[in-house]
Write a protein that binds this DNA or RNA. Structure first.
Length: 777
DNA sequence: CAGTGAGCGAGCTTCCGCTTGACTT
């Protein structure tokens, strides 16, 4: 019988803490928030001072019931949720829902899961901080009001099921505005000149760049011509020591960024792999905004570093959080045991652990010491100069372990070793090169770089970055895509052996991998929100309300007053927008079809973006419709591109008495014949040019494949079929598929076994059905 | 789950932040 019940938020944390506290303490987990606002009527009594109506969430009923049971057995209940706004609210919800008594309830907090931190917390209990709870209530109520008032406006004015909110709408805005910058961007050429000079001997060649970029091809050519007669003199050599500092230990956001850059992980992939490591006790908590390491971690890093690399490499340090709105309830993400530099588990877990280990260790290592050298070279008959830059690592320090990556895609700088050279020395060149370059368009966001931007703006929390990115994709606002680049040609000149030669080269530019592209619906929704709800989609909205939440937390203002000041004008704006704004389909009229004279327009229709040929209210003839293709946007599609869409579907002829047509559907180009669809081969067939004979060939190929797909059926019941699928053989019955265990040979499967397999499977199916029914309720 | 795009109207959708499972043909 234990007299003490400790409640924390995470079950993995509960397990660890229980070990520290001994058998007088039972530690349980609330699994995060246990209650939320009811869904009906906003869950807020707006007329009555915004009184919230909280209900226990469906998936927490069991947890709450169990906690209630344990509370009865306990003498003292310790509420040990996180020390931040949300954690304080969780403590209060527990207090309220579990009907705890003030005399035997204690609130404790700790920032790190170490024995001393926990014992210290137990010795220093406090009361629930109601000001902080109120700040959370204000946050929760504001988000509900914004989300549940704005979304229905979108359902009525744009499309059902859409959503808007304080975080997601600004996220979409960031992407849409960047996309527009990219659309507007025109690459302008500029010209770089490099000289390849000899040092003291013929084999000490080094590279120097002209100190100014040139503006035209003619300037490059004139300059190179001029160089034939120039004398190049070393005016000075300067050496400057410099230092590089290691990056701070990982937070959620920086872990997501580095895992994306170094390993190509998506944001949600990183989180689920980190979750696994956390549950296995290998790393500290993975949803954190703090760069702080516990004392014990700093010490153990010190000994690991001294042991592996020597004393010289150790430099214990503390890092300060820079991000806006950080609440620092946890430590930075680090290995629980720094002595372990590897870990068992999946390949992804090993890689992520390795990254976390290196980053943590490097953060406690010495600065790297560099020496930067610059050689300044004058050109006798020119106003320009050449500059050679060299960088030498004098002491590698933390670089021995870890180097942070960047998002920059700029051309690599000219760095490296420079030969020893005396001032006044006259240099001979091997070659001097001119190179045409182009200004870079603004970079499209990846999932991780969007997270970085959101964190900078103080929008969203570590626990919501990944879900937010899923939401804006699920709503169709944004799509993660790869795009092929386009070929571009550029000029290159070389002065060698007293002769200038020019060549035209080509390169691939603008290729994108795993970037976030806004879709039409995202753009239309964004423009609508920016037009009518400027305040909430302002980049600083969150920062402004956060200031107010802080005031509430300090006890300076009452939360319903803060909400009222926001809600009154906001609600009026919602009503006025519902009344006054037009339905918005993003329609653009592109012009007229030169052949028929009919109007061509594009807009968002019931099934997505489409083009329309002819007028909707033409009584003589219905308009033709065609869906826009992937990569086409309402905003940028041209009349010519839209007209091409109407070349499909094409009728190719008749085969076996039935028409053969070709078109592009949801899954790409296809041939249709006798009610059946056959996909065109990607990269081989073009729907605009494919011919009848080829279409028939594809139809026959598909028939052959279907014949091979069929393994057997049973005389007892012909509806049960054994088929060959992508994942191997399976049973098909009444439109459902059933697994065949690996130890059973599909071809010799008998009727009884097949029926048994089907009968055994429904347990799953019923569960799925129940769930979907629940959802509808 | 592949060609659609009018409209009737009931009933539904929706927020952010804290947690982890149950799913995968």
């Amino acid at each position: 019988m234990s007299g003490n019940l400790v409640i924390v938020e995470s079950p993995a944390k509960a397990k660890t803490i229980e070990k520290f506290l001994g058998k007088d303490f039972t530690v349980m987990s609330s699994f995060g928030h246990i209650r939320d606002l009811a869904k009906k009527n906003f869950g807020i009594d707006i007329e009555n001072n915004y009184t919230p109506e909280y209900i226990v969430s469906d998936d927490k009923k069991k947890v709450v019931a169990e906690l209630k049971k344990k509370v009865k057995e306990a003498d003292v209940v310790w509420l040990a949720s996180d020390e931040d706004r949300e954690g304080e609210a969780i403590a209060w919800h527990l207090y309220d829902e579990l009907k705890l008594k003030p005399e035997n309830t204690k609130r404790i907090v700790f920032h790190e899961i170490t024995k001393s931190a926990i014992l210290h917390a137990i010795e220093n209990p406090r009361d629930i901080d109601y000001n902080l709870v109120n700040a959370q209530q204000a946050r929760r109520v504001l988000d509900r009001l914004v989300g549940f008032e704005l979304s229905p406006v979108l359902w009525k004015k744009i499309k059902p099921s859409l959503s808007a909110g304080r975080v997601q709408s600004v996220s979409v805005r960031i992407l849409v505005e960047r996309e527009r910058e990219i659309m507007k961007f025109q690459a302008t050429p500029y010209y770089k000149v490099f000289g390849h000079f000899f040092g003291e001997s013929k084999d000490s060649l080094f590279k120097a760049e002209l100190n100014s970029r040139l503006g035209s091809k003619k300037e490059v050519e004139d300059f190179l011509e001029n160089c034939k007669k120039s004398e190049f003199v070393v005016e000075s050599t300067t050496r400057k020591p410099s230092k590089k500092k290691p990056a701070a230990p990982f937070t959620t956001s920086t872990l997501q960024q580095e895992a994306s850059r170094k390993m190509g992980f998506s944001v949600s992939q990183t989180m689920s792999v980190a979750q696994k490591l956390y549950e296995a006790g290998k790393i500290t908590y993975m949803r954190t905004d703090s760069v702080n390491l516990s004392e014990t971690a700093v010490e153990s890093a010190k000994s690991v570093i001294e042991e592996n690399f020597g004393k010289k490499y150790s430099s214990p340090r503390k890092f300060q959080t820079k991000s806006k709105g950080a609440q620092e309830a946890h430590e930075a993400i680090r290995p629980t045991y720094l002595e372990k530099d590897t870990v068992s588990g999946s390949a992804a877990e090993k890689k992520l652990y390795d990254l976390i280990w290196k980053r943590t260790i490097a953060s406690q290592m010495s600065d790297a010491e560099l020496e930067k050298t610059t050689i300044d070279i004058s050109i006798s008959n020119s106003k320009y100069r050449f500059a050679g830059h060299g960088e030498v690592i004098v002491f590698d320090g933390f670089l021995k372990v870890y180097m942070e990556s960047t998002d920059d895609e700029t051309d690599e700088a000219v760095k490296g070793l420079l030969p020893k050279i005396n001032d006044g020395q006259v240099l001979q060149y091997n070659s001097i090169n001119g190179l045409e370059r182009f200004t870079n368009k603004p970079a499209r966001y990846s999932e991780a770089s969007l997270v970085k931007k959101l964190e900078e703006l103080g929008i969203g929390r570590p626990s919501t970055y990944a879900p937010t990115i899923s939401t804006i994709q699920n709503r169709g606002y944004v799509e993660k895509e790869d795009r092929e680049g386009v070929e571009r040609s550029y000029d290159s000149w070389v002065l060698e052996n007293n002769e200038v030669k020019k060549t035209v080269c080509t390169e691939i530019t603008g290729a994108e991998k795993g970037k976030l592209f806004p879709n039409d619906i995202g753009m239309v929704v964004n423009d609508f929100l920016v037009k009518y709800f400027q305040e909430v989609v302002d980049y600083n909205f969150t920062a402004k309300v956060e200031e107010k939440f802080d005031e509430i937390a300090f006890g300076n203002i009452e939360w319903p007053k803060m909400i009222d000041a926001f809600y009154k004008p906001f609600h009026i704006n919602v009503e006025q927008t519902l009344e006054n704004s037009e339905r918005d389909s993003g329609e653009r009229i592109l012009g007229n079809d030169p052949k028929t004279g009919k109007q061509v327009s594009v807009r968002i229709g019931r099934f997505g973006p489409m083009a329309q040929l002819g007028l909707s209210d033409d009584e003589n003839k219905k308009p033709e419709y065609s869906a826009l293709q992937k990569g086409q946007l309402l905003e940028t599609i041209t009349l010519e591109e839209a007209l091409v869409l109407f070349q499909l579907p094409r009728q190719l002829g008749e085969y076996e008495g039935k028409v053969v047509t070709v078109a592009i559907g949801r899954f790409g180009p296809y041939v249709r014949h006798d009610g059946k669809f056959v996909s065109l081969k990607k990269g081989i067939d073009d729907p605009y040019t494919v011919e009848f004979d080829r279409a028939v060939e594809l139809i026959e190929e598909k028939r052959e494949a279907d014949r091979n797909k069929f393994i057997k059926t049973f005389s007892e019941d012909e509806n049960i079929q054994i088929l060959n699928g992508r994942y191997g053989p399976y049973i098909s019955f009444e439109k459902n598929n059933y697994k065949i265990p690996k130890d059973i040979d599909a071809a010799s499967l008998d009727y009884e076994t097949a029926v048994k397999l089907i009968k055994e499977a429904p347990a799953k199916k019923k569960a799925v059905k129940k769930k979907s029914v629940k959802k509808k309720k």
